[in-house]
Simulated assay, not measured.
Amino acid sequence: MARVSQEHLDARRRQILDGAARCFARDGFHGTSMQDVFKEVGLSAGAVYRYFSGKDDLIAAIAGDAVGGVRHAFEEAARTTPPPTPDVLIGRVTRTLFDAGQLALDRQAYAGLILQVWSETLRSERLGSTLGEAYGGLRAAWGELVEAYRANGMLRTDLPADHVARTLIATAQGFIVQLALFGDMEPEVLEDGLRGLMSMDVQRAS
């Protein structure tokens, strides 16, 4: 019997995840059955179950992709030296995350899927643990970025690095929420808003 290549296995797994993501984005996690997934991807139950044990396994895999996409976008954007200012950085992150065509969904649908993943962590201990671990890694990575800001003389040294990192992450999360709910959020809006806040002259106001 001919061996199936890893490339073929990866492509089939991606096919299943893409189909499941379309179902979840359209009907929600709880409104989608495994039968819906089989129909969407055009595969038998056996073919799908070879890769995923059930719907919770699919949800966990999609969650991992979403978190991985966010982290990859952050790491790619922050790789330059000196690191880009927050307005440029967040703009790069959001473009990388939503312009890559993840899961064969449009931008608003993909943002909505991420939002579903976040809300599902309140129900699923497994998912909550997975995302909690990923979030901790993201905070640590961005804490290093804040230290790079300090090393380049771009940021005060009396502010906890983790507080700054969490604020940057929250900004990206807020972008995802607005895009999912309203569909009219563009990276330029975030960039301009951050640029405006960064230009405030606090000393003059006081």
Results as ranks from 00 to 15, higher is better:
Gly31Asn: 10
His72Asp: 12
Val117Asn: 04
Glu133Arg: 15
Leu168Ile: 12
Ser33Glu: 06
Arg166Lys: 13
Glu191Gly: 00
Ala25Asp: 05
Val48Gly: 06
Met198Gln: 13
Asp106Ser: 01
Phe52Gln: 03
Asn152Thr: 04
Asp192Met: 12
Leu168Gln: 05
Gly42Phe: 01
Gln35Asp: 08
Gly174Trp: 03
Lys39Ala: 15
Gly183Met: 06
Ala141Leu: 09
Thr32Phe: 08
Arg195Ile: 05
Gly28Tyr: 07
Gln6Tyr: 11
Leu115Gln: 07
Val146Phe: 05
Gly46Leu: 10
Ala45Tyr: 09
Cys23Asp: 07
Asp87Phe: 01
Leu138Ser: 03
Asp106Gly: 03
Leu145Asn: 05
Gly69Ser: 10
Asp106His: 06
Thr167Pro: 00
Gly54Ser: 06
Asp192Trp: 10
Gly153Arg: 10
Pro187Cys: 12
Glu188Lys: 09
Glu188Asn: 07
Pro82Asp: 07
Arg195Lys: 14
Asp56Ser: 12
Gly69Trp: 02
Ala66Met: 11
Leu194Pro: 03
Pro82Asn: 07
Ala140Tyr: 06
Leu97Ile: 04
Gln35Ala: 11
Ala78Asp: 01
Leu138Lys: 03
Val41Asn: 11
Tyr51Asp: 05
Gly19Val: 04
Leu103Asp: 00
Val146Asp: 02
Gly64Pro: 01
Trp142Glu: 12
Gln108Arg: 14
Ile59Ser: 01
Arg150Tyr: 00
Thr94His: 00
Leu9Ala: 15
Arg195Ala: 15
Ala161Met: 03
Met34Tyr: 09
Met185Cys: 13
Val202Met: 11
Val164Asn: 01
Asp201Asn: 15
Arg71Glu: 14
Lys55His: 01
Asp99Glu: 14
Met154Pro: 04
Leu43Ser: 08
Gly64Trp: 01
Gly136Asp: 14
Ala47Leu: 08
Gly46Val: 07
Ala141Ser: 15
Asp192Ser: 11
Leu97Phe: 09
Glu40Arg: 11
Asp99Thr: 03
Gly101His: 06
